Simulated assay, not measured.
Amino acid sequence: MTQSSFSSLLFADTQLPEQVAAVMAAIETDIIRSRILPRTRLIEDHLMEDYAAKRHVVRAALAELQRLGVVVKPPHLGAQLRRFDRQGLEDLYHMRRVLHHAAIEMIEFPVPPERLAAVEAACQAHAQAAASGELIAIHRTNMAFHRELYGLCDNPYLAESIRLHDWLSFPVRAYGVADAQALEQACDEHQAMVQAVRAGNRAALDALSVAHMGRARSLYEEKFLSR
């Protein structure tokens, strides 16, 4: 999958320049690989050297990641990867549960065959990415699966809120991408979600939606909040 197709996959409302999308993907990959940790300063000169990119490209990538909530700029400290404390993490995941529950309540069953097929295709794309081991593809196809699944609510404002909270939680969820056990569990849960949609089982889908958030959050808590 090319960087331009990644850009169109995740940024349907904004077609990012290919060079900006490439730097964003490189930063995301380094977050997933734990090369960039929460509160790590993102210094333009270093990023330019690491990613062989011009300053305006790096700035544009950081600005987009800041818009999505992945990067923050505390006063006098410069850009850095967002870090959550325990209360912030609880607040974020409470909001994600509220949004997902609302979307699932709005899905009309049975889901039309062509829309079910789109969810199934997104699930399969993520499974293929997981098998490939390509970290950025795993992350992006996971986001795409969530977009197709929760998009079944047919409320564009709710679906967009879920997409934005997926990005807000990326500094947390990133640690599940490179963890083999967490990734296997995510693939299994995606399949179970598809089966619940196919069966029109709202209660099962709602329970899976909540459980699906748990593994990556636990990894984050173990790394950064257990000390």
Rank of each mutant, 00 (worst) to 15 (best):
M1Q: 15
Q3P: 12
S4F: 12
S5M: 08
A12G: 04
D13M: 05
D13Q: 14
P17N: 04
E18C: 08
Q19W: 03
Q19M: 07
V20N: 03
V20E: 02
V23G: 10
A25P: 12
I27M: 02
E28Y: 14
E28W: 13
T29A: 02
D30K: 00
D30F: 01
I31M: 07
I32V: 14
I32L: 05
L37I: 07
P38E: 00
R39F: 07
T40K: 09
T40R: 13
L42A: 06
M48H: 10
D50A: 13
K54S: 11
K54C: 12
H56M: 15
H56F: 11
V58K: 03
A60F: 02
A61I: 02
A61M: 00
L62H: 02
L62N: 05
A63G: 10
A63N: 11
Q66S: 08
Q66T: 12
V71P: 11
K73C: 06
A79K: 01
A79Y: 03
L81Q: 00
R82M: 11
R83W: 05
F84S: 01
D85M: 08
D85R: 05
D85L: 02
D85N: 14
R86H: 09
Q87E: 13
Q87G: 11
G88M: 05
G88N: 10
G88I: 09
L89Y: 04
L92W: 09
L92R: 08
H94G: 08
M95G: 06
R96I: 10
R96W: 03
V98N: 07
V98S: 03
L99W: 01
H100M: 14
H101P: 04
A102Q: 12
A102S: 11
A102P: 12
M106Q: 15
P113I: 12
A117R: 07
A118D: 14
V119R: 05
E120K: 15
E120I: 08
E120S: 15
A121Q: 11
A125L: 13
H126G: 03
A127F: 09
A129I: 02
S132W: 12
S132M: 08
I136V: 11
I138H: 00
T141C: 10
A144R: 10
F145T: 04
R147H: 13
L149A: 06
Y150K: 03
Y150V: 04
L152W: 10
C153M: 07
C153S: 10
C153E: 09
D154N: 06
N155E: 04
A159S: 13
L164C: 05
L164D: 05
L164A: 13
W167S: 07
W167Q: 03
S169I: 00
S169Q: 07
P171E: 01
V172N: 01
R173I: 00
R173E: 00
R173Q: 04
R173G: 02
Y175G: 01
A178N: 09
A178H: 15
D179C: 08
A180W: 08
A180I: 14
Q181R: 11
Q181K: 08
A182V: 05
E184Y: 04
E184W: 07
E184F: 08
H190M: 13
Q191T: 15
Q191L: 07
A192F: 12
V194Q: 03
A196M: 07
V197Q: 01
R198I: 00
A199L: 13
A203N: 11
A204T: 13
A204D: 15
A204C: 10
D206M: 05
D206P: 01
D206H: 13
A207G: 00
L208Q: 06
H212R: 06
E221W: 00
E221C: 15
E222I: 12
F224E: 02
L225Q: 04
R227K: 15
